[in-house]
Amino acid sequence: MGMVLDVYRCVEQPQRWQGWLDSLCEQTGAHSAVLQLIELQADAVHIVWQAGDTRTSRLQHQRAGRLTGVGNPRVDRRRILRHANRVVSDDDLFERDDPGRQALQQALAQAGLGAFLGHLVAQEGERYIGIALHREAGTGDGFDHSAPACLTALAPHVGQAAGLGQRWQHAQSQARQLQAHLDLLRCAAVVCDEAGAVQWTNRSARQLLQAGSPLGVQAGLLRGAQPAQTAQLRQEIAAAARAAGIADSAPRWLALERDGRSLHIALQGQPADDGPARVLLMITDSRSLVDTPADTWCQLLGVTPAEARLVAALAQGRTLEAHAAQRGVSLGTVRNQLKQVLAKTGTTRQAELVRLALGSAAAQWQAAGG
């Protein structure tokens, strides 16, 4: 029972497989224990993932070709399909005079490995979890009668735990990738529960929630700069959570100010499968500058580099006069550039051009290292 319980601890901690396989070696008298996720492909058998006991892992670099399936005649599509879901030995997989068997056993003997016992557990699609046990070379006839029984009892649990572990690791990888993507957004994003307890943030939000902002975190809860603002914020969060799942429910809106700095917040509740609703806060900062590189506007608007620098300046709130002074050109030159940009973008006024720039996907992108 202990080994059955321990195998499920490997789901979220794959590093524990090595210790579990050490225990399997002790239980069965094996000298080596290897666990593999095998995928059948059109023209080959692919080893997706592998773990070994401590001894095998230490010497893996010396015997990788023999233990991972590369050139191993046991790892053959025909044999896998024929012998899945049961305990097998080499007597089940090969004819005694099979040259492939003889070559394999000679190679394994050189690595100190003798008799083989294995089990394949079918997974989704054409994937299998394989357990391969080897006795030490020169230790006699092989495994005693208790080893197959042990393997038969443990294999379904190993298959389930390994399958769950692969899905868990895949989900964790996807979550890390999603976090990395959302960290690129200029807009701050915060997910909290109905009480305002922060559960997730992107990079822009982590920067915004630092001291001095109209919005902060205290004891894990979102708070405003003043008690009245905190009360209003919590009220809006709770209302958004109550509206979660209601068809056509509109976002709620809130502005928080502190020392001339203003935050605009949109709040939208979403139902959760595992408990109370969660609330997404999307936050923009009045002090945030749209520092989009000028060459981006060249690509998006089809303007020249000089015209793109003007668009970048206007998106940051600079005047034509300030841009002319910074660039060391006349105001007339800048006005002529503006006329050219308006014509190329199909806009008619400076305000319309700025609205186009601020509404562009480029304006929502966090600058590298920002």
Score class of each variant (00 low, 15 high):
residue 217 V to L: 09
residue 195 A to R: 15
residue 280 L to P: 02
residue 272 A to H: 12
residue 82 R to T: 11
residue 92 D to S: 02
residue 2 G to M: 11
residue 212 G to S: 02
residue 190 V to K: 07
residue 272 A to P: 00
residue 140 G to E: 08
residue 180 A to F: 06
residue 143 F to T: 10
residue 152 T to K: 12
residue 75 V to E: 02
residue 211 A to K: 05
residue 18 Q to W: 02
residue 184 L to H: 13
residue 36 Q to P: 00
residue 29 G to P: 08
residue 114 G to D: 10
residue 346 G to S: 07
residue 20 W to L: 13
residue 327 R to G: 00
residue 357 A to M: 09
residue 252 R to Q: 08
residue 227 P to L: 04
residue 313 A to Y: 05
residue 193 D to T: 06
residue 48 V to Y: 03
residue 170 H to V: 04
residue 338 L to C: 04
residue 102 Q to I: 14
residue 351 A to M: 02
residue 132 A to L: 07
residue 353 L to Y: 08
residue 367 A to F: 03
residue 352 E to N: 01
residue 321 E to N: 12
residue 144 D to C: 09
residue 164 L to C: 10
residue 176 R to F: 00
residue 126 E to Y: 01
residue 14 P to H: 08
residue 187 C to R: 13
residue 151 L to W: 01
residue 176 R to G: 10
residue 370 G to K: 07
residue 150 C to M: 11
residue 20 W to K: 06
residue 241 A to R: 07
residue 15 Q to W: 09
residue 94 F to L: 05
residue 323 H to L: 07
residue 29 G to Q: 02
residue 289 L to R: 15
residue 176 R to A: 13
residue 259 D to M: 07
residue 149 A to N: 01
residue 255 A to I: 09
residue 350 Q to M: 13
residue 199 Q to W: 00
residue 47 I to N: 14
residue 253 W to N: 06
residue 47 I to Y: 00
residue 185 L to T: 05
residue 131 I to N: 00
residue 193 D to W: 03
residue 213 S to A: 10
residue 95 E to R: 15
residue 238 A to Y: 10
residue 197 A to R: 14
residue 272 A to K: 01
residue 347 T to G: 06
residue 121 V to L: 04
residue 33 A to C: 12
residue 286 S to T: 13
residue 280 L to M: 12
residue 260 G to E: 12
residue 316 Q to F: 06
residue 121 V to H: 10
residue 267 L to N: 04
residue 170 H to L: 14
residue 353 L to S: 09
residue 181 H to W: 13
residue 239 A to K: 07
residue 80 I to G: 03
residue 234 R to P: 03
residue 100 G to N: 12
residue 302 G to N: 10
residue 334 V to H: 04
residue 201 T to R: 15
residue 259 D to Y: 04
residue 344 K to Q: 11
residue 217 V to S: 07
residue 345 T to F: 09
residue 332 G to V: 14
residue 224 G to H: 08
residue 90 D to F: 12
residue 138 G to W: 07
residue 221 L to R: 13
residue 52 G to I: 00
residue 370 G to L: 09
residue 97 D to R: 11
residue 325 A to C: 06
residue 221 L to S: 06
residue 324 A to K: 02
residue 13 Q to Y: 11
residue 40 L to N: 01
residue 71 G to I: 11
residue 280 L to W: 06
residue 123 Q to S: 01
residue 32 S to M: 06
residue 233 L to C: 08
residue 366 Q to Y: 02
residue 95 E to P: 00
